[in-house]
């Protein structure tokens, strides 16, 4: 790489300038997160008398344990658990139903195949935001308000994942299916022994993207979880602000904000390669 860059790569002052710009950029982008972290480690009086400090205080355990175990309406630990169930439910559910339907579309010829394919395609055009009221009524009709089913099912059908798997299955050599057929293997055996293992990387990359998608949902949990016990953390933060003139409990709210971003950040940063791949794949 170094030789290739050689000619156009700046040296000396230039390279330091470049690093300086980059660091400045990172600092600006990072500032909101830093400030939230600082606020989660100081006392309420330190915040309500501006300007608040810009360096962490000593109330870390105090604020985080208060948030986790008592919270404002409901312990944040409960909301974290709900978010985890929802995010994993959506990610795993989407992957399973998409794997199955993509397998059916690619490896079989059956009546209505085209119709079903288009039907799945069109769901791309129906984000939850444009069908909120009727979808809410459907979920209420099933008695799924304030339940994990209600949080997960309406968001679980994904055209994107189905297309991604379809695309990938089409690249699996025909010889493999041929061999399986000659050996008299049943389709589902071929699916489990060949197709799923070969899709491992795609599944993992998609899991990262879908986990974050599920975790970061806001509007849908806001509509269907009226019981604070079922709130997810991302929608629950807003519920912690008092209505009227009371002063918000900023240290607890900011500790909750930090807790809300930790799981997706860990997933993104620790699986960075898969994440970037999933991002690029799922937008294709």
């Amino acid at each position: 790489m170094a030789q290739q860059h050689g000619m156009v790569e700046k040296r000396g002052l230039g390279i330091w300038m470049t690093h300086a710009f980059m660091i400045l950029g990172v600092l600006v982008i990072f500032f909101p997160i830093w400030l939230a972290f600082v606020a989660s480690t100081v006392t309420q009086p330190e915040i309500v008398k501006p300007p608040m400090p810009l360096w962490p205080g000593d109330q870390f355990w105090e604020n985080y344990s208060r948030a986790l175990f008592s919270g404002v309406n409901v312990p944040v630990a409960t909301m974290l658990f709900n978010s985890l169930v929802m995010a994993i439910g959506i990610a795993v559910g989407k992957i399973i139903i998409s794997l199955l339907s993509a397998f059916a579309i690619v490896y079989f010829r059956f009546p209505g195949r085209q119709t079903f394919f288009w039907m799945i395609f069109i769901t791309l055009m129906l984000p939850v935001e444009v069908r909120i009221v009727p979808t809410f009524e459907v979920v209420a009709g099933f008695g799924m308000l304030n339940s994990y089913y209600g949080l997960i099912f309406p968001l679980i059908a994904s055209a994107t994942a189905t297309f991604l798997f379809r695309q990938f299955f089409l690249t699996i050599p025909d010889e493999l299916a041929e061999a399986a057929r000659v050996d008299g293997a049943r389709p589902m055996r071929f699916f489990w022994d060949i197709v799923v293992p070969m899709s491992r990387t795609n599944i993992a990359a998609l899991f990262v993207i879908l986990f974050i998608y599920g975790w970061n949902q806001y509007l849908w949990p806001l509509l269907i979880t009226t019981d604070p016990e079922m709130n997810t953390i991302v929608m629950g933060i807003k519920q912690m602000f008092p209505s009227g003139d009371d002063v918000a409990e900023w240290p607890v709210i900011m500790a909750t904000s930090i807790l809300a971003m930790i799981p997706p950040v860990i997933v993104v940063v620790s699986m960075q390669k898969l994440f970037v791949r999933g991002l690029v794949d799922s937008e294709k």
Binding site: I33, M235, V268
Partner: peptide
């Protein structure tokens, strides 16, 4: 690695940070 952090932050949480 540093720059992809904000992507993981939910829009609603980003809202709370900026509101703060």
């Amino acid at each position: 690695t540093m720059l992809i952090w904000p992507y993981a932050v939910a829009p609603a949480v980003a809202g709370v940070l900026w509101l703060f």
